[in-house]
Every structure is written in structure tokens, then in C-alpha cells.
Design a protein around this nucleic acid. Structure first.
Lengths: 337, 337
DNA sequence: ATGAAAGCGCTAACAG
DNA sequence: CTGTTAGCGCTTTCAT
């Protein structure tokens, strides 16, 4: 169906080389006569020629494709970042294969492997695992990649994260400033460093205000089943400690579910409770106007991650090996109240 | 870095052919001795062999990659469908390159072209254009693809859509049943067939209830700038027709923005107005408990689209050409009140 | 039971 | 200015 370089060459009684030069835009640099160039281009158009990028990639050793691995593309936070990544990639003539790891280490492993086999030029990963040999392996192989959202502080990698501790601190501080004293923290995946940091921020804010940190007000739920789990856990929490007057949510998903729950079971929700959460969700602020939000700079996260990666790929491609000059970026959230 | 078939073959003093047979799992079928098979596999493991899928694809003519083109991956509706597509693809050993067209016909065009050049085995598209030559071209070329969300009724293609008219009708009917009589419709992209269908459903519900359809209550906004536009337009609408007592939104985005606006400018929003909208958004229902929703079967849409496409690709691959036996699927929404 | 060789569609060093 | 040739890594027909 599709015609190839060879077809054009034969048709024109030229060599594949010549045709290749002009069609890949190197006609002038290679001193192909203008007439020949025009001829080839014209014929290519007539024959509806489309280059086979697969063949080109195999030959040149670059696919102009990135691999993106995130917990789930249907999570708005990651979807927004994915969008920014895609845009930046498109600007640079890259496309992206997107993969949801489902927070499953095994699937993450398989995905990375598959993407490497498909010869993507680089990876952007929000890793799920605590300590990862595969990541170390990537480093050893000098495979270009950048981590975001989560990272490994003791590994020398590119990464883009946000100021988690500070954000949490700022937002909880504002809830305290409203006069709330008994603030519960709802969290998940606490084995992740970023969650620890958010907890630390929460703690710091309380301590600074002279409030004792109460372990009983720390609630952790399992992400995979939070809808059910939260209902149960919140019920217990609020019956044992009916004087709770505030919540800090370490993710927007937890905020959504909890506020839903509260609306179902309490009146005057926003009078009774103060709220703080990480990441903005469109309607949350309407529902709880007193909510303090640390808004994530999603565009920047995606844009930075992609451009850092593409930069590294390009360098590598051109043989410029700037050994171990990895870039780590910490972006700031915006506090909304 | 990575080693190839050839390396293993040389190392083992075997031919590439033999190594290829066993590593691609065809050892038995090709009568390679068990010992040789074990030997090869062992050595491959030791040498950390990973197949180059690019080369394999070029050779076999199948990439096991799909292209997905949607208006925007950061739109929750599309993100959910994308997730379902990805899952179904993964099950069948396919991966997917995702592309946001930004509702820009030119970008859509370029994306389809690029994906074809990258030799994706098939496309899943939520097309933006009214009438599309490129789509017709795909048909001529027998390029596997499936449309969803939007489609071209006069073209013989695979498609997966929902019962737009009926959904709109059902949901508006319920608002009327609550006693609302002056129901405005907020819509966008009315050139799209699916929007026309939703409008028809709205109209049908009104007419059936003996309510005159008032053109002045039909508001269309431009998606690309709806935040600003909506504010202005709603202000005017509500000053001219202060007795409006209900809204039907043809997309969840419009619902979100409008309800935000209403909460800012009115008290007793849910007493004063009845609401109906297409597609579910988590918090909307909490904010407006009287909202009638036509919930889209996002999982099914994605799952169906992907499996239809993969089915067709597989058929084509195996040379089974079931000429023009395209499948069109109309899924039903679920009404929530 | 295994291998030689051509081919997928493109690039690029080298020749002339 | 243009062509020859080998090669990217894998598959597959046809020999042996």
C-alpha cells in the first residue's frame, strides 16, 4: 500500500541514497541538484509517500518516543501532568507512550522493560517502589530517565518534585490560625517519602503552635480500596474523638471522599471543621470555601520533566556525555485560602 | 550495551536463526533440541538479552502499538476512557501512544499522520472535525481504526458511542418532573452531532411536557475559553430571565463552571434551580444533590473501543479480511438522581 | 536439528 | 552531483 524510498528510486531511476537525502531534508547539504530535488519531492507527493519511522529509528538509533509511567492516568493530578508532558514532547517532535502502573511494583517493572524493548529514548516515571534495583540498573546503563512526584534521595537521578514538607506546613498552619486545635491527618501510602514529608509538615505546624501531636488522629487508608475503607475509618475516628475540628488530607482524593462523607453525616460542615489539602480539585473549594490548598504546579512539573529528559536524550545522541550531571528540581506549590 | 541475537549466536557458535527460534518461543515447533534451547536461554539470561522490538516490528510488520487521539487527556472523561483503553491494550500485549488534539483539526491531522508513520497498528479517535477526508482516506487504505464519542453516521466505520438523545431526554425529564419549567441549556461545540443529539433530547423532554422551547435559553460557549465566557454569558442570561429555574448542561465541564458561578452569586442554589447534566463528576453530586446525571459508561467505552480495534488488527494480521464488516456500538448511560 | 541468505525500509560512509 | 554497499536487529524461506 504505502510506497517506500525504493519505489520512488526505481520509478525515477535514481538510487535510494539520493532519494533518502532529499526526502530527509538533506538535499542541499549533500549537493543534490535542485532539479533532482524537485523531481523527487514531486514524485513522492504523487506517490503519496510517507516515511516509515520504524525503519528510520532502527537505522538511526533514536525513536523520538518517550515512555511515561504513572500510577494511573485517570487520576486528575497525573492526567494534568501527562498533558503537560505530551505538549512539551510534541513541541520537540517526540511522542509518548503512557502506562499506568496501578501502583503495582511488578507491573511497573514489566512496563519499564517493555518500554526499553520498544526502544523508547527515555522514561519519565512516578515510581511506586520504595527501593528499586531497576532504577539503579537504568543508571548503570546510562538510560535517560527522570523521576517526578516521588524520587530516591540517595540515588543520583534527574527528578522533579515539590516542596512537600513546606506546603503541608503552610496549609496546616492556616487551619490552625483559624482556631482549630484538634486536626486529624488522613493519609495513604505512608512508605513513600513524599507522604513522610507531608506528615512532617503537618507535625511541624502543630508543634509550632504548641499543639500536641496525637497519634490517634493519624489515619492511613489503603488507596486501592479507599472508598469503603474511609467510611469505616472515619466513623470510628469521629465517634472516638467527636471534638475533632479539622482535617489535613495528603491527597486530593482523600479530601474528596472525606468531605463527601462529612456532608452526608454532619450539618454545618465548613463551620465545624477546618480543612487543608494537597493539590487542587476544581469543586472542592466551592464545597468547602474554608479549605486551604497547596496547589501543585502541574504544568511546570510536566514541562520540566519532559524538557530535562529531552535535553539529556539530545546530548546523549550528539555524543556529548556530561557524566552524572543530573538535575534535581524542587518546585513550589501555591497556597490558596 | 544491550546485546543482540547475533551476539548470542556468535558466542554460542550457533546461527542467528536458531537463537531467534528459541528466543521467540518457537523452539519446539521448529524442532530445536532441548539441550540447545536450554543453552540459548541460559546464555541469553546471562548476557541480559532483551529483544529489540523495533527490529521485530519492522520485520513482522506489526508494532503492537495503538494510537489514541482525544481532545485532551486532562479532561477527566477522556482520561477515564484512556485508562480503560490502556488496560484492555495491556491485556492483549499492546501499548498505546496518546495524543491530545486540543480540538484542533490541523493538529489532529498531523497526529494521525505521525502515528501512521510510526506504524501503529491501529487508531482510536474521538474526532474533532465535522467532515473528514483523512478518515475517508483511512477507510480507503483499510487502516484499522475505531471512533468513539463522536462519529460520522454516513461513513462505514467502527464506532462506540452512547445514546445521547435518550440520555439527555431522560435527565431533563426528571428536572421537569421536579416542577421546573424554565430550563436553560448550556452547551458547546454544537456543530458536533453528539451535541445536536443532546439538544434534541432536551427539546423532546420539554415538548413532551408542553413547555415551549425558548431559543433565548440556549447558551453556547466556546470550550477554549469557557471560564471567562461563561461568567459573562450567565450574568446576562440571568438578568434577562431571572425566572430561570433549571439548567441542563451538555458536558460536565459546563456544569462545574456554572454551578461554581451560581454558588458565588445566589443563595439556596439547589432550592432555586434544578440541574441535569451529562457525565458524572465526583463532587458535583455533593454540591447539588438534586442534580440528575446521565453517567457515561466510561470503562465500557474504552474497553469496547480497544477490543474492537485489536480484533480487527488481529484479523488483518492473519489475512482474514472480513470486508467492511464494521461494528457500531451504542452504549447506554445510567441515570442517577 | 541447524544454517545461509534475503528481506523489512531506512541511513551513511565511501567512491567516483 | 550521484551511486554502491553495508548495516540497524530481527524473521523466515529454503537448504542441508
Amino acid at each position: 500500500m504505502g510506497c517506500s524510498l525504493k519505489d520512488i528510486a526505481e520509478d525515477l531511476k535514481l538510487s535510494k541514497t539520493t532519494v533518502s537525502w532529499v526526502l530527509s531534508g538533506n538535499g542541499n547539504r549533500r549537493n543534490i541538484s535542485i532539479e533532482t530535488q524537485e523531481l523527487v519531492k514531486k514524485r513522492a507527493r504523487e506517490m503519496n509517500y510517507e516515511p516509515n519511522l520504524l525503519a528510520k529509528s532502527l537505522s538511526k538509533g533514536i525513536t523520538h518516543t518517550l515512555g511515561l509511567i504513572i500510577p494511573s492516568i485517570s487520576d486528575l493530578f497525573y492526567a494534568q501532568i501527562a498533558k503537560a508532558i505530551e505538549l512539551e514532547a510534541w513541541k520537540n517532535n517526540f511522542s509518548v507512550i503512557f502506562c499506568s502502573s496501578e501502583s503495582d511494583p511488578q507491573k511497573e517493572f514489566d512496563l519499564i522493560r517493555m518500554l526499553k524493548q520498544k526502544q523508547v529514548d527515555g522514561l519519565i516515571i512516578a515510581p511506586t517502589k520504595k527501593n528499586d534495583n531497576q532504577i539503579k540498573q537504568l543508571i548503570v546503563e546510562k538510560y535517560p530517565f527522570v523521576l517526578f512526584d516521588r524520587y530516591y534521595p540517595n540515588l543520583n537521578t534527574n527528578y522533579v518534585i515539590i516542596n512537600n514538607e513546606e506546603s503541608a506546613y503552610n496549609v496546616v498552619k492556616r487551619v490552625i490560625a483559624e482556631g482549630r486545635r484538634k486536626i486529624a491527618i488522613i493519609t495513604t501510602n505512608s512508605y513513600l517519602l513524599l507522604m513522610k514529608m507531608r506528615y512532617n509538615g503537618y507535625k511541624k505546624a502543630l508543634e509550632e503552635a504548641g499543639i500536641k501531636v496525637d497519634e490517634n488522629l493519624l489515619i492511613e487508608v489503603n488507596v486501592t480500596d479507599y472508598e469503603n475503607e474511609l467510611n469505616k475509618v472515619l466513623y470510628e475516628l469521629l465517634s472516638h474523638y467527636p471534638d475533632i475540628d479539622g482535617f489535613f488530607f495528603t491527597t486530593h482524593i482523600l479530601a474528596i471522599e472525606t468531605i463527601k462523607y462529612l456532608y452526608k453525616h454532619f450539618d454545618n460542615v465548613t463551620k465545624r471543621f477546618g480543612f487543608a489539602c494537597m493539590h487542587e480539585e476544581p469543586l472542592l473549594h466551592v464545597l468547602a470555601p474554608n479549605l486551604k490548598i497547596a496547589r501543585m504546579p502541574v504544568q511546570e512539573i510536566g514541562q520540566m520533566a519532559a524538557s530535562i529528559l529531552i535535553e539529556e536524550i539530545t546530548m546523549k545522541q550528539e555524543g556529548i556525555i556530561k557524566e552524572s550531571e543530573k538535575v534535581g528540581i524542587v518546585l513550589k506549590s501555591t497556597i490558596i485560602e
